[in-house]
Design a protein around this nucleic acid. Structure first.
Lengths: 181, 181
DNA sequence: AAGTATTTGTGTGTTACTACACATAAATCA
DNA sequence: TGATTTATGTGTAGTAACACACAAATACTT
């Protein structure tokens, strides 16, 4: 991998750290490029050297999370279905505040879209290894059905609408999904 | 005051923070420009844009300390002698680890020189307001005599050679100096 | 004492960041 | 609603920090 200029790393780190801190305490919708720049202690112009706007910034952070999530999933793909679910739900718990902020916002549709795609992708993989009990139902329908279902539960968990701890949630979701494969 | 470029402030802050952290944990003599730059996460070349070498860096930090000390002393110059001594000894205590590091080092002669000059200056001021009981002794001799004495005690305190707390030390030193004015 | 490794100080060309200014677009408020 | 503020996105010229390379000086080994 080629070497990246120190200044680029510093600027991006400062921007992302400032953004994440503000995201949790205020909300995504309240954040402005100006406020990010001030908190990051950089010129506003510098922000635009790295990102198109705050949506672009969020996009890149989300992409990075999903990339890491995929790595985790790939690394543990030989585990059983429920075990696997527990593993990636744990990552979700680790960044609960971050994801909660995004669920709370009304202008983070692309995040929901990406997360859904990710979940559907994971279920899709499991669908291959299991001989489907649903020959009568369109594969795409199953994926969308289960995908939105899982994302809905994640949202509930993030927004503290359930009392259960993450492992219990993961187990139950895993069971429900498996039943429908 | 004119506006200073953000990048200059950031570099200098990073350099000084790295230097001070290393000064306390390692010693001044062990520190290199290379290690400072690495800890500060800047290029070594950048260091030389701001300072001639590590001695120059230390010099500027010491000057800054003495400047603040002088401000404190000026601000409290109407207080009595012993009270005044307590006040500026308190500042010394606050940065005890920093000063201890310098006393410990064998290559910080300019620090000792500057500190001595500062102390002599403070005593000199008090000498004006008191009618001297030492008409027979050269003013410069008194200053040097008392100055080195005070600095010696400060060194002892910094290097933990005395058990007394800083206020008690200050009181005793104040009394001793006053007796000799 | 000779050989090796590390640190130093400097030169060079490149690039990211800077301050500042401007017009446009959104909010906020009277 | 229209007026005023605040945020956005972009342009420009100047400069600090960058990576890299080098020779000379120090420090460390054996």
């Amino acid at each position: 991998m080629e070497k990246i200029d120190r200044r680029i790393l510093k600027s991006q780190q400062a921007i992302q750290a400032a953004f994440l801190a503000m995201l949790v305490h205020e909300g995504f919708d309240e954040i402005t490029v100006k406020s990010i720049s001030e908190k990051a202690n950089i010129g506003r112009k510098t922000f635009y050297l790295h990102y198109v706007d705050k949506y672009d910034l969020l996009d890149k952070i989300v992409d990075n999370h999903l990339k890491r999530l995929r790595e985790i999933c790939d690394h543990k793909k030989d585990k059983g279905f429920i075990e696997g679910t527990i593993i990636w739900f744990a990552y979700f718990q680790q960044h609960k505040l971050f994801f909660a902020s995004l669920f709370r916002s009304e202008s983070t549709l692309s995040f929901r879209k990406k997360l859904l795609t990710f979940i559907m992708g994971e279920i899709d993989k499991k669908l291959d290894s299991n001989t489907s009990i649903n020959q009568t139902i369109d594969r795409h329908i199953i994926l969308k059905f289960l995908g939105t279902a899982v994302m809905g539960v994640l949202e509930s968990y993030a927004l503290n609408e359930t009392e259960d701890d993450i492992e219990l949630v993961a187990k139950q979701v895993g069971t429900l999904v498996k039943r429908n494969l």
